[in-house]
Simulated assay, not measured.
Amino acid sequence: MELYTAIQLPKPPFRFSWQEHTLLLGSCFAENIGTKLAENRFNVDINPFGTLYNPASIAAALRRLLHPERFTSNDLFRHEGVFHSFTHHSRFSSTSETECLENINDRLFASAGELRETKYIVVTLGTAYVYRLKSTGEVVANCHKLPEKMFDRSMLSVAEIVSEWKELLLSLWEQCPELKILFTVSPIRHWKDGAHGNQLSKATLLLAVNTLQTTYPERIAYFPAYEIMMDELRDYRFYANDMLHPSELAVDYIWQRFTENFLSDETKGFLKEWAEIQKAINHRPFQPESEAYKRFISQTLLKMERINEKFPSFDSTKEMEIIKSKLM
């Protein structure tokens, strides 16, 4: 008896390898999955502009990475003693203009320098609604709590999203011909849009992504994080206290579904061995002086030596030092 509606994941046109560089951009769900990848020693760059929600702002960030130009004081504004950028999340904001620009530009050029070596980009779209600054007509990535009267709010159409992203993708593939793109739609509901408005927004994103994916089926894939949350995890026990964000358990489950379908066999094998080592590193013994625990540590060191032999590019120096310190 089936007690829930399982989401069937189609065979993807490509699979991720832990050794290849991956760039993640988008909503806070991109951060959730990016953190999981980083914990499992993937080579990742997570949100170099901070958390972004709408397709236009994410596209603008990618264009800036493709053609990096240094941000200047003209790109900042000051509000209540803090300097902000309309292109960035507030994590880059600072009471010092110099510090704000240093944070922004250091991150920009570090990520831009890695873009041409990037094999995969994961884009997580949060909402189709955008805010435009009335004085310029510019779509902002973050309003930084400025008065609502300064902005015009509207929803992007499917055609607008597809048109902008087609042009961007062709530019990306011109510079990075082997680049693969994975789109997801964030499972986090934007309740400020209202229940109906949120559904319209998500539907717009889904239609736009589907158009792009069917246009470039070998280069673009879709992972149904939104559908998994809405169907397989529809119970409120899978939500955080705000009843909008996925709980830690839900993120773990969606991560499991992602690894089952989108990782290469070699990477799955690596993750299995690495999980055993992580468990050993985090283990807290009742009797750290016992011979049994010393044998356990020695066996863990042997496992690490074997994983280094099997995956020569894997650097476990830090973890080896942690394990060896437990023998002292």
Rank of each mutant, 00 (worst) to 15 (best):
F49V: 04
L200A: 05
P10A: 11
Q213W: 08
L206H: 10
T267L: 01
M150N: 13
L125P: 02
P48N: 08
P177V: 09
E164S: 13
L146I: 01
H89F: 07
S163V: 08
L179K: 05
S186V: 09
N308G: 14
I307E: 10
T95N: 10
L66R: 11
I33C: 03
S290L: 12
Y222A: 11
G194T: 06
Q199E: 14
T127G: 02
T267N: 04
L52W: 02
F92C: 01
L263W: 00
I46V: 13
T136Y: 09
M150D: 13
P177K: 10
A110I: 07
R306Q: 15
R295D: 14
T118L: 05
A280F: 03
Y236W: 10
R116E: 12
L170E: 15
K134N: 12
L244D: 07
N40R: 13
M1R: 11
C176D: 00
S90R: 06
E31I: 11
T5G: 04
I161R: 04
S85A: 13
H21W: 07
L233F: 05
M155Y: 01
A128N: 06
S157H: 09
R107G: 03
G81H: 04
A240G: 12
R257S: 07
A6H: 12
K324Y: 08
F223T: 08
H196I: 15
T317F: 14
F223P: 03
T5P: 00
A240S: 15
H190W: 09
A292K: 13
V140D: 00
P285K: 07
N103F: 13
F296R: 08
L301H: 05
Q213T: 14
L133H: 10
H283F: 15
K145Q: 11
S135D: 10
I220S: 05
P48W: 03
E99C: 00
R132F: 08
V122P: 00
A38G: 02
C176Q: 09
Y226S: 05
F16G: 04
K134L: 10
M304Y: 09
L249T: 14
T300G: 13
S325F: 10
E80K: 15
K145T: 04
F296E: 02
F29E: 01
P312D: 03
A128V: 04
R234N: 12
L302K: 15
L24T: 07
Y120W: 10
A195Y: 12
A141N: 00
T95I: 10
H245V: 07
L156P: 09
V251R: 01
S264G: 08
S73V: 11
I104D: 02
H88S: 02
E227S: 06
R234L: 08
S201W: 06
F42P: 01
E174C: 11
I297C: 12
K166P: 00
H79I: 00
E39V: 05
Y53C: 00
I33A: 03
N54C: 09
A128G: 06
T5S: 12
Q19D: 11
A208Q: 04
E227M: 08
P224K: 04
N241W: 08
P285E: 05
E160N: 12
Q299D: 15
F16W: 13
R132C: 14
T127F: 07
W165A: 04
L146P: 03
A203P: 09
G26P: 00
R64S: 11
